[in-house]
Nucleic acid binder design. Structure first.
Lengths: 190, 190
DNA sequence: ACCTGAACACCGTTCAAGT
DNA sequence: ACCTGAACACCGTTCAAGT
């Protein structure tokens, strides 16, 4: 005789996101998530394969939000301003979802990998701006250089690695300005 | 009546490094490290406060090696060539010690933080090159921009985030060249 | 169909007892 | 002084049993 469902996959993923940001990755335990949705840990396995699967679903949900924000941000028509807007949007997301952000870019030791389609969607606007600034042949390297800088800056900021003082906001503004200039025009390589 | 020591802190840290790189952070268990040095897990607590402390010692040992390599690398006399050498040295270290590298730049959720003196030592050569390229007033922002790019590039490479194809080595060479140019000369900001 | 308690094989860590 | 087995409070996960 069927028992009515007491929760849903969406509720589990949402609870997981909240717990992940509030308690960190170590705090995201199956028992804790189960309690948050009013069931016991073993019942979670009716809806997710294992903890890595739950983590994957959490990263996908957050990644979809990020991709949508990026799409919205890059709409000024000016590639340089779009680039600045994209970098800011990226940083804002990371500061609001630091634990999630760290896992998105982590080595797969946690076993969870975001949906590749989402990664592509999140890259699209940047590739467009990069093509306009650096030229179509160099657009991939240019986009990579910018995203590497932005990710590096943000992850160091989140890790508290900027310990030599100075204004971090200003350093971010300086960096994105320098990067935009760096990928502009003909390559100095070779 | 004293029992002779069966191992040493150095042996424990060395075993920890090997296990960390071979099995990942999750594989670095107190029981596993103890077995590698021929004792039982509880005896480790005679030499380290807890697992976070062991992790800290591992990161310090690796960080000292990295700082020494960086010092050695930046000796061409030419700031631009020094910058390229520093970036390459950094990347080589990360590729040889990927698990250690990831923890060095991780949020302190793992609880282990490297010795600040080591961070400073590792930054010194870069700050010198940055001062020559960008001018003394902009050296901190310039150094941060370069290290952010390098760390971002490397951590994305290690995470397997470069999925759109293209030559990753060439992208690294392109990036460091662009970054060196980017921090040169007067700032375009403001 | 969904949910549960009990159980298993792991953790990090403590502690009394051994030499 | 250093090392140990036993124990505790946690994990993720499985599974038979309940409704």
């Amino acid at each position: 005789m069927p028992t009515p469902a007491r929760t849903s996959l969406d509720a589990i993923v949402a609870a997981g996101r909240t717990i992940l940001e509030a308690e960190g990755a170590d705090g995201l335990t199956m028992r804790r998530v189960a309690a948050a949705v009013g069931i016991r840990a073993p019942s979670l396995y009716k809806r997710v394969r294992d903890r890595a699967d739950l983590l994957r679903l959490i990263l996908n949900a957050a990644g979809a939000e990020l991709a949508a924000s990026l799409d919205e941000a890059a709409t000024t028509g000016n590639p340089r301003r779009d680039l600045v807007a994209l970098a800011r949007t990226f940083r804002t997301f990371a500061r609001r979802n630091p634990e999630t952000y760290a896992l998105m870019f982590a080595r797969s030791s946690e076993g969870a990998r975001m949906d590749p389609d989402l990664t592509e969607r999140a890259s699209a606007a940047l590739l467009r701006a990069a093509a306009e600034l650096a030229g179509p042949e160099r657009r991939l390297e240019a986009a990579r250089t910018v995203v590497a800088w932005a990710h590096g800056f943000i992850s160091m900021e989140l890790a508290g690695a900027f310990r030599l003082g100075g204004d971090v906001d200003e350093a971010f503004a300086y960096g994105v300005d320098r990067l935009a200039t760096a990928i502009e025009g003909p390559s100095g390589l070779r």
